[in-house]
Every structure is written in structure tokens, then in C-alpha cells.
Amino acid sequence: MIRKLSGKVRRFWASLALLSVEMVLLAAVFLVSLTVFGYMVRRVFVLQNNDFDQQVFDYLGGWVTPGLNRFMQAVTFLGTHRFLIPANLSLIAWFLFVRPHKWYSIKVPAIALSSLLLMSLLKNLFGRSRPLDPLLEPARGLSFPSGHALMSMTFYGLLIYITYHSVKNPRLRWPIIAFLGLLILTISFSRIYLRVHYTSDVLAGLALGALWVVLALKLIRRIEKQGKRTLGPIVGHGPAPTMGTGPVPNAPSEPM
């Protein structure tokens, strides 16, 4: 009995320590993202300093090749609405019918739609024009912040969140998270390479996307906790679906 109680106490303190680390990391992401976005807004619209944007374009001009052009076009497609709309719908269907977890099926459209609305509002608020000399094809719409960077950060960032809490095998979990993080950065970089966004647009989009996904998950998590008792039978909240092999008894719980 004493040994079992001692084991439970150790597991409790281990889980509490892990949760504290997660909260510190989330707070750091929030503060860094807010700082980067504020700095970009000040630099571009208050100081009207675009020297860095042009310097990046000039540097990348020496790396342009037909093969790299095709690669960047393929990568940038993964951040377009033509890909993200069916990807979001597929993810919703997955959590409704394949591995039921209806709170995840709520989080996916909530974050996608709110991110789209936020992007549209800010683009029209700042009204920055696109670069005048795109590498291949011109892009429509306004430039700041980058929609590709913002929407990629929120969608693939949500996948990182789901992977962290759902994939129990660490040998599978961390490579997936690393791949998704690299994909976010590559999609964002492709917009600069193709000269359809300034570097400041992309950095602002990444920062705003990270900021928004943290806030949205925090808000949805709070609604989830408050509605468990009254909406539980309707929403069908249950444990997060497990992916990967082998149960992990001390798997991290959702901090948000």
C-alpha cells in the first residue's frame, strides 16, 4: 500500500513539473511572438524602414534556379487555401468518425476560421501592397501579414499540439513535430523566395500565427473545462485518441 501510494505521489509531482515546463514554454512563445509582431509593425509602418526586406531579396537573387523554383512552388501550395481547406475538413472528419474526439473536431474549424478572419482584418487594416517584382507569378491581395505564414502556423501548429498530446511513442512523436515545424518554416520561406511577400510580412505572419494558436487553444480549453458537465453528453468529450505504439502511463496532459 505504501509503495503504491509513493508511486502515485511521484507520478503526480512528475506530471506537475512537466505541466509547469509546458506553461513556461507557452508563455515564452506568447511573449516572443507578441514582441516580434509589434517590432515588425513599428519597423514597417511607423519607421517605414524596408531596407532589410530589400536586402533579403537581393541576397536570394543569387540562389535562384529552375529546380529550386519548382520546389518552392510545390512547397508553397501546402499553405494555400486549395490545400488547407480540404486538409482541415479531412482532419475534422478524422476526429469525428475515425478516432472520435469531438473536442478536437471543434478546435480544428474554430482555429481555422478565426485565423482566416484575423488575417483578413489585419491585411485590410495595414493595407500594404505586394512586392512589385514577383519571381514567377504575381499574387493577389494585400501583403501584411503573410497569410501563408499565418495559416500554416495555425494549421500545422495545431497538428504539432495534437501530435504532442496524442502520439504516445516518443520515437514517433518528436520526428513528426520536427517535420511539421520545418514545414511551417519552409512554406513561409517560399513566399520570400518567390518574392510575393516581404520578409517582414512573413515574420509578422509567423509571430501572429503562433500568438493566435496559443490564445485560441487556451480559450477553447477553458470553454471545454466549463462545458464538460453540462455539454459532456452532447459533445462526447473523451480521452485524446492514441496514435503510435505502446501506452505511456505518464503521458503529458493538455495544459490549455
Rank of each mutant, 00 (worst) to 15 (best):
I176A: 08
G79F: 07
V108Y: 00
T199R: 06
G67R: 04
A110T: 02
A14D: 09
H81F: 11
A240I: 07
M40P: 02
S15G: 10
T80P: 02
I111T: 08
R99A: 12
N50H: 14
N169R: 11
W212P: 03
L118W: 01
V64I: 13
L185I: 11
P86A: 00
Q73I: 07
P175L: 15
F45R: 05
S20H: 01
N169G: 02
L25R: 01
P109C: 07
S253L: 13
L31I: 14
Y193H: 01
G61N: 08
F12M: 11
S33Y: 11
I162T: 02
H197L: 11
A178Q: 06
G7H: 03
P100G: 05
L194W: 06
L180P: 06
P255C: 09
L132C: 05
M119L: 15
R99D: 09
F12H: 08
F45D: 08
I184T: 07
S253V: 11
L132W: 08
L142W: 12
S90A: 15
R130T: 10
S152N: 04
P145Q: 13
L142S: 08
F144T: 05
R191E: 14
A110K: 00
A251P: 06
T186V: 12
V29I: 15
I184R: 06
L16P: 03
I223G: 01
G236P: 02
R99E: 09
I234Q: 04
N49H: 12
T245H: 14
S6G: 05
P252S: 07
P255K: 06
P66M: 15
F155I: 07
R10A: 15
G79L: 05
N49A: 15
L25D: 00
R70S: 14
S105I: 05
V248K: 05
Q226W: 12
P241T: 01
Y104I: 01
T35G: 04
L211H: 06
N69H: 11
S253K: 15
L185G: 04
F77I: 05
F95P: 05
V214G: 03
L219S: 13
S15A: 13
R130W: 15
F155T: 01
D51G: 03
R191T: 10
F77K: 04
W174A: 09
A139L: 13
T80R: 10
V235G: 04
F30Y: 13
Y156A: 02
L217Q: 06
D201P: 09
T199Y: 06
T230S: 05
V214Q: 04
I234G: 01
P138K: 12
I92G: 00
L206W: 03
R43I: 15
G141V: 13
S188H: 10
S152A: 15
A139D: 10
S105K: 00
M119Y: 11
R221D: 11
L136S: 09
Y104F: 14
R10N: 10
S253H: 12
V214K: 00
R222D: 08
H237W: 09
S190V: 12
R70P: 00
V9T: 08
S33D: 07
T230G: 03
T163K: 02
F45L: 14
W174T: 10
L183A: 07
V24M: 09
F37S: 02
G157H: 02
M119C: 11
Q55G: 09
L203F: 13
R128S: 12
G244S: 05
L116A: 15
L118S: 04
L159V: 09
A28E: 04
L215N: 01
N69G: 10
F189E: 03
L185M: 03
G38D: 07
G127M: 14
L215R: 02
